[in-house]
């Protein structure tokens, strides 16, 4: 398989919910693909079906029209990982055990699993908190643990649903840089849903702009800028202006 092939295809996907006896369309004819090792940002006003789209891709909801295919679907070792807006760590498990959940079906020995957990905790800077319970972590640390849990699955596609939305802006910028560093060291495609246009442009190779009622794709913006990017650069500012004009 060549490097430019796509990891994920979303073709003609529509989704509706029954509401007051009527079907309300939340996603209308969504089409896009995600390349291997590509970072794809999705921005849009709330209610445009961004989160629903991720739920469809990860398989939490299987009732939709159209098709969602992965090039690695046949390989059980390649999975789709997901990071939610809230960390969703299990409060009764230590950070270590939470990350270990990702290796539940892995054939590795207990020792190998332990090493792998240690590796991913180190990657997100939580080595010292392996034995801590989620309650004892700050919001940013808990979110990093959730990212470690998703990475430990070693997915070829990582879906992120407003992963830094609940964090303050300085912490958010730091975690964005950490995410890029992790992405550079791991072979993974990332689809990141956000309401922060700047975040999408800073991280993404392309940014899908969605609009609501029903949720559909307005435009796909290519961010052809080398990394590391400068958040304050004129190029980013231009693209941001373009995206915002579509959103407002």
């Amino acid at each position: 398989m060549n490097a430019s092939a796509n990891a994920l295809f979303v073709e003609h996907v529509s989704k509706s919910y029954p509401l007051d006896g009527l079907d309300r369309l939340v996603l209308k004819d969504i089409n896009f693909s995600v390349g291997h090792n590509e970072i794809l940002g999705i921005v849009g006003a709330s209610g445009c079906g961004k989160s629903t789209l991720l739920r469809l891709i990860v398989g939490l909801d299987t009732e939709y029209r159209g098709s969602i295919t992965r090039s690695n679907a046949g390989d059980p070792g390649k999975r789709v990982g997901m990071v939610f807006q809230d960390h969703r760590l299990y409060p009764w498990l230590t950070v270590e055990a939470n990350v270990g959940l990702a290796l539940d079906t892995s054939p590795l020995s207990a020792r190998q699993k332990h090493e792998k957990i240690g590796h991913y905790l180190h990657l997100v800077g939580l080595s010292d908190f392996a034995k801590a319970y989620p309650r004892q972590l700050s919001g940013g640390m808990a979110q990093r643990a959730a990212i470690a849990r998703a990475l430990a699955q070693e997915p070829d596609i990582l879906l992120m649903d407003e992963p830094f939305g609940a964090l303050d802006s300085i912490l958010r910028m730091r975690l964005q840089d950490e995410l890029l560093a992790i992405w550079e060291r791991n072979q993974v495609s990332i689809v990141i849903v956000t309401h922060d246009v700047e975040e999408a442009l800073y991280l993404g190779d392309r940014v899908i702009v969605m609009e609501p009622n029903p949720g559909r794709i307005r435009d796909i913006v290519t961010v052809d800028l080398p990394r590391p990017r400068d958040r304050a650069s004129l190029d980013i500012a231009d693209l941001k202006k373009r995206c915002l004009s579509m959103l407002m």
């Binding site: 299990y90 009764w92 079906t105």
Partner: peptide
């Protein structure tokens, strides 16, 4: 939301009982 995590992580039935339903 915690049940969704179990689905995404593909947890086995036994793990769901011991690490999700019973502790919760």
């Amino acid at each position: 939301p915690l049940v969704d995590v179990a689905s995404v992580l593909n947890l086995t039935y036994l793990t769901r009982i011991t690490k999700l339903y019973l502790p919760a």
